[in-house]
Design a binder for these strands. Structure first.
Length: 500
DNA sequence: TCTGGGGTCCTTAACCGT
DNA sequence: TCTGACGGTTAAGGACCC
């Protein structure tokens, strides 16, 4: 806690949805819902227009569609969001070297450390200028909270939303917090909120009255003590610029539960490879391998194994994952599988012993002539999967199509996984490799040889509808093509600003 | 009609060694 | 030598965040 409100929290308004609106002029002012489009997709972000229909983050997409049938439902384009985020974070770093990003659309800034502001008036001026700069640079709006601590700055930006600024004057924090719901405090989610509610505590004021001992008894030592301090407006956590990753993981939810043990093993191997790809790309190795299984009834279990030393060897991670899977009962079906690595070391140590063992064990798989080091960097894992497709047939065919569109992003590939699953069901479509079934996800970028850049508005029954417009242009025209139209191809997102 | 993906942190229990 | 307290590590699960 400090005396002056010089901690700034920036929160971009409905970030993903706003980026989509900015890059697709016909969606300006319209209900936009960004998230997974598969049968088990959930909403990542909804525009304020969509929120008026009751749509919100984490809601099943199917429900969102029912609530807001005319909303545009789009897949996330993380590569573009990352570009915009980098721009915004760059603006923040002009204010201070102490910038702590929390996600693509949120960050803390210590203004005092950057000598950007030392009092309330200065902080407010910096905040307003920042908001103007962000809009000038990206066309988007962000909300700013200013206070003497991280927690209060975050509460302030939340109150300021959308497109506002709120500064909490030192000395006023307790009375400001008192009437608020306990749920406004970071760390109080559905479970803790319900727990407190049953004890008759619904506001922050009541939380403070309860006292530390009472709270510790109710929700545990660390949580209770932290909660009590927050209720009093106390928080002295510093803004930390660089924090090391603690784990790397990948997971896939399948469109339909999978039962086949062979398929489950295969998926786990693919996930292990993808995980190692990400691990290596980040320059890490790790010591503990974690397998995650979500069963048909949504019950989730994890199994982990700690190695003698850190590894980034795909064969080692594959083996460990397979071992862990053997101890899991999957009868009844599996809806999600995940592989993760924790206990990260920021160096890469060759685990020679394990590599020798892996090489010895490598003769086992049927077509196992592949080199164990064939883990491609993130986003290209289709290639390693293709090696294994010798057994599984056309499973990776759709992966190829999606891969072309997903150049920039891990998530470009996510949709592909779902598509791959669907194709895999048809099994032995080896002969169909030439006739690639292209999957046009709503919201993805395309380019037509004649009409130029556009985005997929929808597709089905052999047709794909494309709207031809770009950031900065007036709303564009819609045209429909056959899904296999040779003049239509996936493309990269266009920058939000810069052309204008 | 269900419930994503990528993380973080905390709690509890078991186990091991001192 | 037996027992207990304690601390560290591992494993599993859960809550929470965006």
């Amino acid at each position: 806690m400090r005396s002056a409100p010089t901690i700034l929290h920036l929160d971009m308004d409905a970030f993903y949805a706003s980026v989509e609106q900015a890059s697709k002029p016909s969606l300006h002012g319209k209900a936009v819902i960004v998230g997974g489009l598969g049968p088990r997709g959930v909403v990542a972000t909804a525009s304020y227009e969509a929120r008026r229909f009751g749509v919100h983050s984490a809601m099943p997409m199917a429900q969102a569609r029912r609530l807001c049938p005319n909303g545009a439902c789009l897949i996330p384009r993380f590569s573009l969001y990352r570009e915009v985020s980098d721009l915004v974070m760059g603006l923040l770093r002009e204010l201070s070297p102490l910038v702590e990003p929390l996600s693509l659309d949120e960050a803390f800034v210590d203004l005092e450390a950057g000598s950007a502001a030392f009092d309330a008036a200065g902080a407010r001026a910096v905040g307003e200028r920042l908001r103007a700069d962000i809009t000038a640079a990206t066309g988007l709006s962000g909300s700013v909270g200013l206070a003497g601590s991280k927690m209060l700055a975050k509460v302030a930006s939340e109150e300021a939303k959308p497109n506002g600024l709120l500064l909490i004057e030192p000395g006023t924090e307790r009375e400001l917090l008192a009437p608020m719901s306990v749920r406004t405090l970071p760390g109080v989610g559905p479970a803790t909120g319900e727990h407190l509610r049953r004890a008759g505590i619904t506001t922050v004021g009541e939380l403070a009255e309860a006292g530390e001992d009472e709270l510790v008894r109710m929700v545990g030592r660390a949580h209770g003590a932290g909660l009590y301090r927050m209720a009093l407006g106390l928080d002295d956590r510093p803004v930390v610029a660089e924090r090391d990753a603690k784990s790397v993981s990948v997971e896939d939810t399948f469109d339909v539960d999978i039962h086949d043990r062979v398929r489950i093993r295969h998926e786990v191997q693919r996930l292990a490879d993808r995980c190692v790809g990400r691990l290596r790309a980040s320059g890490h190795s790790g010591r503990t391998i974690v397998l995650k299984v979500r069963r048909y009834d949504f019950s989730t279990l994890t199994r982990s194994e700690t190695l003698r030393g850190p590894t980034d060897d795909p064969a080692v991670v594959r083996e460990a994952s397979a071992r862990l899977l053997e101890g899991v009962d999957t009868t009844g079906g599996v809806r999600l599988l995940g592989v993760g690595v924790t206990g990260l070391a920021d160096y890469t140590q060759e685990d020679l012993f394990a590599q020798v063992r892996a090489a010895e064990a490598d003769g086992e798989p049927a077509g196992g002539a592949e080199e164990s080091g064939a883990v491609a960097p993130d986003g290209v894992e289709g290639s390693s999967g293709a090696v294994e497709a010798g057994a599984g047939g056309g499973a990776e065919v759709a992966g190829e199509a999606g891969g072309a569109g997903g150049v920039g992003g891990a998530t470009g590939a996510e949709g592909v996984v779902a598509a791959g699953g669907a194709v895999a069901a048809s099994g032995d479509a080896v002969g169909a490799v030439g006739a690639v079934v292209r999957h046009w996800a709503a919201g993805s970028d395309v380019r037509h040889a004649v009409y130029g850049p556009g985005w997929v508005q929808g597709s089905g029954v052999g047709r794909v509808t494309v709207r031809f417009e770009q950031p900065g242009t007036p709303p564009g025209r819609v045209r429909t093509f056959r899904v296999d139209d040779p003049e239509l191809e996936p493309s990269d997102p266009l920058p939000l600003v810069g052309t204008a």
